[in-house]
């Protein structure tokens, strides 16, 4: 019984982990159609923000929940103004540009901090006991944060004026513009929010995984696979994609080891996209956000 609870908890953690690293990309790629290959680097920058701020004496909760999204959000807005805004509607060009951006960010961080960085930030919160088993209380916290974050993004998109304008602009920018919406501003804000969500995710994961200039590479493929498998509805899609792929990854990792967990995740995505080329939300939950 304890084992079942412990494994189930791990499974939920793997799923929310996947949702957490994918959500920022879902906004930037799923919604704005910008193939952001620098997504991993946004996560990485969030992690560095936390490590630098905490080492400078800032409270760890403040640096994770406030500073990381703020810093990366600002970087996102700068990137959008300088680079991305010239490229809307040119998907392949965004791929090339953001790839260059990713290399640039890795290079900058490496030259400032070196190739390996001491992350002497331990996960806060203690240990959760499940009978004979124990899990990190911080993992439980991450699950809760992911759910809150998904809910928050849903509320913003569904019920605020900004959400309505953003959805309208992404669906038909010319019409939105004709109706008096400053689409350029909406694009900037949306990109900034996507970056901020990525920064928050990277910041939250830093105590669990540590930071390296190249850590983005370990996230980028999984994030894209999750968002693409999810399909066009960004929230329902990301959630469904994370549950399916994370669940499969978690179960296979537990039964057959990590290598097979990774293989199973990729196989599942391939089969899924063969059966549903437009992702899960291309067939189910089509009207959702």
């Amino acid at each position: 019984m304890d084992l079942v609870v412990a494994v189930l908890f791990q499974l939920i953690y793997v799923i929310s982990n996947l949702a957490l690293i994918s959500l920022g990309l879902a906004i930037i790629f799923g919604m704005m159609r910008v193939i952001n290959l620098a997504h991993g680097e946004f996560l990485m920058l969030g992690g560095y923000t936390v490590v630098v701020a905490t080492n400078a004496g800032v409270n760890i909760w403040v640096s994770m929940l406030i500073l990381a999204p703020l810093v990366v959000g600002i970087i996102g807005v700068i990137v959008e103004r300088l680079l991305i805004r010239w490229l809307y509607g040119r998907m392949v060009d965004t791929l090339l540009a953001t790839w260059g951006l990713s290399l640039l960010l890795v290079g900058i961080v490496t030259s400032i901090f070196g190739a390996s960085t001491g992350t002497t930030v331990s996960p806060p919160l203690g240990v959760v006991r499940i009978g004979d088993y124990s899990a990190s209380g911080y993992e439980l916290f991450l699950v809760v944060v992911t759910i809150v974050l998904l809910f928050g993004v849903w509320l913003t998109l569904r019920f605020t004026k900004l959400g309505l304008l953003a959805r309208g602009t992404m669906q038909n920018a010319e019409m939105a513009s004709a109706l008096g919406v400053s689409t350029s501003r909406i694009y900037m804000i949306t990109f900034g929010l996507g970056a901020a969500v990525s920064g928050l995710a990277g910041g939250l994961l830093a105590p669990m995984t540590g930071v390296l200039p190249t850590i983005g590479a370990t996230y980028i493929a999984k994030a894209f696979i999750t968002v693409i498998s999810g399909g066009s509805a960004i929230l329902a899609g990301t959630t469904a994609g994370s549950v399916l792929l994370g669940g499969i990854n978690g179960v296979f990792s537990f039964v057959a080891g990590s290598t097979f967990g990774e293989i199973a995740l990729l196989m599942a995505a391939i089969i899924l996209l063969r059966l549903m080329p437009r992702g899960i939300t291309g067939r189910f939950f089509r009207k959702s956000i």
Binding site: L3, V7, G261
Partner: peptide, 20 residues
């Protein structure tokens, strides 16, 4: 005996298995 690809960062399932 468990092997991990070099880019694995989540060791949760393994920690469960070690506890088991």
């Amino acid at each position: 005996v468990e092997f991990f690809p070099l880019d694995v960062t989540n060791f949760g399932p393994t920690i469960n298995k070690i506890q088991t």
